[in-house]
Each structure stands twice: as C-alpha cells, then as structure tokens.
Simulated scan of single mutants.
Amino acid sequence: MVGNSKLIENYAQIHASQAYGNTSVKNLRLIRPEIQLLRPQSIVDYGCGQSALLDRLDLGYPVEGYRYDPAIPAFAQKPDAKVDLLINVDVLEHVEESDLDEVLADMRAMCRDALIIVDTAPAKGVLPDGRNLHVTLKPHDWWRERIAQHFGPLYPVRTLRRARAGFKTWQRGPKQTLQYHLMRAREDARYYAKRVQGKHKVL
C-alpha cells in the first residue's frame, strides 16, 4: 500500500458510513468513447471507491477489469497484473502532496496507458482533523506537470465541470477524432433520452 496510512484510514471510515466515489460513472458518457477507441483488453479502476464504473463500462467487447482502493476492504488487494489502461477519477486530490510521487509511480508501474481526472476545487466535506477532503488543491497546469513527470506527454480529456482537470496518455489521429465526436453525439443522445424518461438524475 502506498500513501499515508492514517489518511487512508480516514477515507475508509468515510466510505463505511456514506455513499462516496461515483464521479467516474457520472463522467462515463465522456470517457467511454475515449476508451472504446483505445480498445484496451484489461482495465484497472485505481482508487475506485464505491464506484460501479467497471460494471457500467459496456465497451461492446469483453474486457478484464480490476478494482483497487486501499480504503475499501473488498478492493484493498492490489492486482498483480499490468493492465492496458488505468482509470483514476477524483482520487489524486485526496492524496497528500508529499505522497503524490509515490502514488503516481505506483500507478505508472501498473499500466500501459492511463486516463486521469483530478478535482481542482474544494470538497464539501472535511477530515476529522478539519482539513478539506481534497488535501491537495492545485490548478490544472500544476497537475499536468506533476502527472507528466511520471507518465510523459498528456492529452486533454473532457470532463463534466471546469474545476476538473482531465488527462490521458494517448493521442487521437484525425480519423479517430471524427469517430470520437460521432460516438460522443450518440452518448449524449442516449443520456438525454434517459433523462427525459426519468432514468437519470440531473448532474
């Protein structure tokens, strides 16, 4: 396990007492086309929390999925496999700055490519010691530079809110970019159709 063990225990208590960690599912209609175009055969949701992301990913083909989160007993065992894609959504802001390089190095060692989203705004809740739940609050450019030190060149990933910084380690060519926009249009159409039918809450 990497990171501050006391801080991880604080998050474990929060997870045990309330619903927490579903931002990745809310971003699914934005990130699924990116993942489908990359076509990974194995994925780890690193810092998965209580997220159902892997259950709802639905890429249209079989994929081997792993969950890892040291604050969730059921997912606290880190997978031994090196995966094609690591997904990390709203996790790094919960890591103390002094531990970031250790966590990022751990993430890098687990994957070929990565899709990372970081929240740059304060959370609504606080830790037992009074600190904001987002213990590392930095602007987009700071995160890009820090993550790139471990992952190399990064490319933007669209997110639901401007306060979130999204990055991926692979680049789309012109043909894939056209495919991406067509796939995004289908995702949006499906999402808003379900909202009209009352199957989605307003995000």
Rank of each mutant, 00 (worst) to 15 (best):
A81Q: 14
L115S: 02
L115I: 01
A105Y: 02
D113W: 09
D101V: 01
K78R: 15
C111K: 01
V103M: 10
H94R: 04
H94C: 05
L104K: 10
K82T: 15
D90G: 05
M110S: 15
D99A: 11
D90W: 08
D90R: 02
V89A: 07
D99Q: 12
E96V: 12
P79K: 07
V83G: 00
M110Y: 02
L115Q: 04
A109K: 15
K82A: 13
D106Q: 13
K78C: 14
I117M: 15
I117Q: 12
R108N: 07
L100T: 01
D106G: 05
A114P: 02
D90L: 05
E102W: 03
V91P: 10
C111N: 02
D119H: 12
L115N: 04
D84W: 06
A81T: 13
V118D: 08
V91R: 04
S98K: 15
V103K: 07
L104C: 08
R112W: 01
V118P: 06
K78A: 14
A109R: 15
C111T: 15
P79Y: 04
E93S: 09
E93Q: 13
R108T: 07
M107P: 04
E102G: 02
H94W: 03
D90V: 11
L104A: 08
D106Y: 00
I87C: 08
L85K: 08
D84S: 06
M107E: 11
D119K: 08
P79M: 10
D99G: 04
V91H: 09
E93P: 10
A105M: 07
D84T: 08
L86D: 02
A105D: 09
D119R: 11
D106H: 13
A109I: 10
H94L: 07
K78M: 14
H94A: 03
V95S: 07
V89L: 10
I117K: 01
L115E: 07
H94I: 01
I117T: 12
D106F: 08
L92W: 04
I117H: 09
L92A: 02
A109V: 08
L92D: 03
D84N: 11
L115P: 01
A105W: 03
H94K: 03
L100W: 05
I116G: 02
E102F: 07
E102K: 12
C111S: 13
N88G: 05
L115G: 01
D119N: 15
V91N: 08
R112D: 15
N88E: 08
D113I: 03
V89D: 05
V103W: 10
L86Y: 06
R108W: 01
D80P: 00
H94T: 01
V91K: 07
V89N: 09
D119W: 05
V118N: 08
D84Q: 11
L100P: 04
L115M: 11
L86S: 03
D113V: 01
A81F: 00
A114S: 05
D84Y: 05
D106S: 13
E97K: 14
A109G: 12
E102I: 11
D90I: 06
H94Q: 00
A81R: 14
L86Q: 01
M107N: 09
A105P: 03
N88Y: 04
D80L: 14
V91S: 06
D101K: 10
I87E: 00
V103S: 07
E93G: 09
V95G: 01
E96C: 12
D119G: 11
K82D: 06
C111E: 05
